[in-house]
Amino acid sequence: MSSLVAAARGVYLREAGAEILKSWRLPQFAIPTIVLPPAFYALFAFGMGRGDPDVATQMVATFGVYAVMGPALFGFGANVAAERESGQLELKRLSPMPAGAHVTAKLIATMMFSAVAIALIYALALAAGVRLGMAQWLTLAAVQIIAVIPFALIGLGFGYRMAQKGAIAVVNILFLGMAVMGGLWMPIAALPEVIQTIAWGLPSYHLGEIALMAVGRSSSANLWLHAGPLALITLASAIFALTGQKRHAA
């Protein structure tokens, strides 16, 4: 008998479309994740930085990373916990949907939301007098969009393990903690030495530094100094997410 499972490409597309619709229609998700990061960027770049293009350039790198953390951590942490608790994941698992379709769809939706938030920040950066070459803008955008992945994996690991309320609390702490201690709001050199040490274990710190390299503002020129630890952290996060998924499936 010929296959009765729908073609994978169509399923992935419809699943991604549904994820984008769901997020877009949920104001408590869309507003904080799209509007708040650009608002914070404006506050820091124009307010504290007094419109200094140098400060604004530094911050377009780090605030772009901050902007993708929210949708990735909340979309994968809190929302997956809610879908798991309500039995929606169970029902998908009993359907012939390809196993990776749901997570892939969420990843696409998250990257789209992140892209909108980042685009708003870039527009504000241009207004603040930030001037970069086209290659620099594109590299920066690529780094910041890819940054979704490690945060999504961390969120997923908690989403599979924790109840929704607990997951929201944990993700909130991680969101603010990784932003501040990773040097995304203010340069890490301005923070206590102990936090500078902790930062080495945080994906936010390494992604911030790689983004700073993209705009030519990093103190270091050695990409692998940060790409290496970042790869290790991402691998550990992937294991955290996969073991969580196995636990859920058992």
């Binding site: 296959s3 009765l4 499972v5 729908a6 073609a7 169509g10 399923v11 419809r14 699943e15 549904a18 619709l21 769901k22 997020s23 877009w24 229609r25 949920l26 809610a82 879908e83 608790e85 309500s86 039995g87 929606q88 169970e90 029902l91 359907s95 012939p96 949907m97």
Partner: peptide, 21 residues
């Protein structure tokens, strides 16, 4: 089992039906 809050009834049904040829 819960339903996807952000989708309408026909969107939710269409998504599920789409898994089947």
């Amino acid at each position: 089992a819960g339903l996807p809050d952000g989708l309408t009834v026909s969107e939710a049904i269409n998504l599920q039906a789409g898994y089947f040829k």
